[in-house]
Amino acid sequence: MIISKRILDTNRLKEYLKNNEETAKILSDFDFDLILLKENAEGFYYSFIIENIKTKEILTFDYKEGKARERLTIYNKPTKIIECLHCIILDFYCFYIESEKDLTYFIDSFYGSEFYKEGIKAFEQCKILSEKLLRILSISDIEKLYKNIEL
């Protein structure tokens, strides 16, 4: 069970959410949390947690921010959760929608042949992330969030 219930007050986050009513409706089925796991010279490492309130299914995602970013606090947590959700949705979109789950297209579009090994690793990570995300959100809802979360 997630400790920080109802952390996302979509009215407080209007600057990041277009079509707030539709976005709020999708997000209202979930609780979110972001936990700092580790901090080092490279940045901040988090566990991003999404709980489906209706089914009680809980998913966790690894999330990393560079050192130039602000450290997680109780005050910026809602914004950081939206940022994290946005990044996960972008990863899903690149893998599932734009590259249509095709490794060659994914690498050519996002990495180039000189970074082939990194591209394969990112492709596999996006595949796992996409499969997890589709367990709790429909493609239609992901597309709506993709269009309506603006950072």
Rank of each mutant, 00 (worst) to 15 (best):
N76I: 03
L85R: 10
I26V: 04
Y116H: 08
I53T: 12
Q125D: 00
E143H: 01
L72W: 09
K5N: 14
S4R: 14
L13E: 09
K64L: 00
G43R: 02
F61Y: 09
C126F: 14
I139D: 10
K132M: 07
K67L: 00
L13M: 10
K144T: 01
S4Q: 13
I128G: 03
L134N: 00
L103W: 12
A68V: 03
N11Y: 02
Y45W: 06
E118H: 10
I53K: 15
K67M: 00
I49W: 14
L13K: 12
L13D: 06
I88Y: 13
S28K: 14
I35S: 15
E98F: 09
M1V: 14
Y75S: 12
E70P: 03
T79V: 11
S113H: 07
G112M: 03
T23L: 10
K14N: 07
M1I: 13
E15R: 15
T10E: 06
I50V: 14
S130N: 05
N11H: 11
L90G: 13
E15Y: 14
M1L: 13
Y96F: 07
S140R: 04
D29Y: 12
K80P: 01
E98I: 10
D33G: 10
I149K: 02
L72H: 06
S130M: 00
L72I: 11
E42N: 15
P78D: 07
K18A: 11
I136H: 02
L85W: 05
I107R: 12
D108F: 13
L27T: 05
I82H: 06
D31H: 15
D9C: 12
H86F: 13
F92P: 06
N52W: 07
K132V: 09
K18I: 02
L137P: 00
K54L: 11
E51T: 08
S28D: 05
D9Q: 00
L72F: 09
Y96S: 11
G112L: 00
L133T: 03
N40T: 01
I89Y: 09
E57N: 13
D108S: 15
F110A: 00
S130Y: 01
I136V: 12
K67N: 04
L85E: 05
Y93K: 06
S130G: 11
L85Q: 06
D9T: 08
I142L: 08
T73R: 14
E124M: 12
L34Q: 04
N20P: 06
D91Y: 04
G43F: 08
K101H: 10
Q125E: 09
F61M: 06
I2N: 09
K117Y: 03
F95E: 01
L72R: 12
A24S: 15
F115G: 07
K14D: 08
K101Q: 14
D29S: 15
I26A: 00
I2A: 06
S113A: 06
Y96R: 04
K144W: 00
K5E: 11
C126G: 15
S28R: 08
G112H: 01
S99A: 09
R12M: 12
E22I: 10
K56R: 15
K64I: 04
E70Q: 13
N76R: 07
F61G: 04
S4E: 08
L151M: 14
L134W: 01
K147F: 02
L34D: 04
L13Y: 06
S140M: 00
L137I: 03
I53N: 14
I7A: 05
I97F: 07
N148H: 05
G119S: 01
L37E: 00
S4I: 03
L37V: 13
